[in-house]
Design a protein around this nucleic acid. Structure first.
Length: 297
DNA sequence: CATAGATCCTGTATGC
DNA sequence: TGCATACAGGATCTAT
């Protein structure tokens, strides 16, 4: 399940292999993969073919590849999201097409092609215009609403504290809200909360400024560790840009550890249903809030 | 507006 | 063995 560290590994791979190349041909093999591109597959291909890819960018879990601008035309980019199972593979043309190949990009002068492969089809690609954002950067329209990620030097820690403390929602739900801080998914949310001993059901409003700052530091720590190892995956579906598995031996303290002893206190890790998925936590280190969720009356 | 819940999708694992 | 069900979950849409 790609979260920020995994997506960053893919971005770096695209920068290494794809930037500077000119697209010769595009083949859309499954319409769902470009469902966010309203004008359809023909338009998608037409907006990409003949263009040179000039860079590889990321915000949170979104990736984009800005395209060389034609005279009098708006700046555009190929925008991608891997969803749960998406992969961007750079492979020789004679590599066999897998059953989940959704989009293929061929480049001028032959060589390796770029393939978007996605089993569960939650991911997708689109071509979008780039617009200015308040900090002076250029981001695609579908990314405008996405907040900066905690590893971004321009991330505003105090704004994050205010945002979290202004919400009635459970803190884990706030962590997963990509408009508050981007790049955090179910795995790193559970790991970050375990690390500081806060239960994900605690309302944001009930956390102190110091606790929210600790939480932010914790998110940075778990993501930074994963990034240092080149991304983490616990699912064979995650494969890096060259087609090699991104799996690393990495001890998880909470996520997926139901029944295993907590690394801090030995209490068995518990799993509870949350937002149609699972939350893992130590019932001893991370005590559930009691009483009314918000404390208001 | 803020918040909560449903929904999409398919391969794998598990239960009866 | 075979069929049914649960599960994985990011982003978006709908409902309250």
């Amino acid at each position: 399940m790609p979260e920020l560290p995994e997506v960053e590994v893919v971005r770096a791979g695209l920068e290494r292999w794809i930037v500077g190349r000119r697209v010769a041909g595009v083949e859309v093999l499954h319409p769902r993969a470009i469902r966010r591109h309203q004008a359809g597959a023909g338009d998608f291909a037409a907006r990409v073919e003949g263009r040179r890819i000039v860079s590889a960018a990321r915000r949170g879990k979104y990736l984009w590849l800005p395209l060389a601008t034609r005279r009098e035309q708006p700046e555009t980019a190929i925008v991608g999201h891997l969803g749960m199972s998406g992969q961007l593979l750079v492979l020789p043309p004679d590599a066999p097409d897998g059953p989940h190949l959704r989009v293929r990009f061929r480049f001028e002068n032959g060589g390796r092609e770029l393939r978007f492969v996605d089993q569960r089809t939650f991911g997708g690609l689109a071509v979008a215009d780039l617009v200015g954002d308040p900090a002076g950067g250029r981001v695609p329209v579908p990314v405008v609403h996405i907040g900066r990620d905690p590893l971004d030097p321009a991330f505003d820690d105090e704004a994050f504290v205010r945002r979290v403390r202004s919400k009635d929602s459970e803190v884990k739900r706030i962590l997963l809200d990509q408009t508050v801080a981007s790049g955090i998914g179910n795995i790193y949310a559970d790991e970050a909360l375990w690390r500081i001993g806060i239960h994900g059901s605690r309302p944001g409003r009930r956390l102190s400024r110091a606790q929210v700052l600790d939480l932010l530091e914790s998110v940075r720590a778990v993501m930074g560790e994963a990034l240092a190892q080149g991304g983490t995956s616990f699912d064979a579906l995650y494969v890096n840009v060259n087609g090699e598995s991104g799996y690393f031996e990495r001890s998880l303290n909470a996520y997926g550890q139901e029944g295993e002893p907590c690394a801090r206190c030995g209490t068995p890790i518990r799993r509870i249903a949350f937002m149609n998925r699972s939350s893992y936590f130590c019932p001893s280190c991370q005590r559930a809030p009691r009483g009314r969720p918000t404390g208001r009356r």
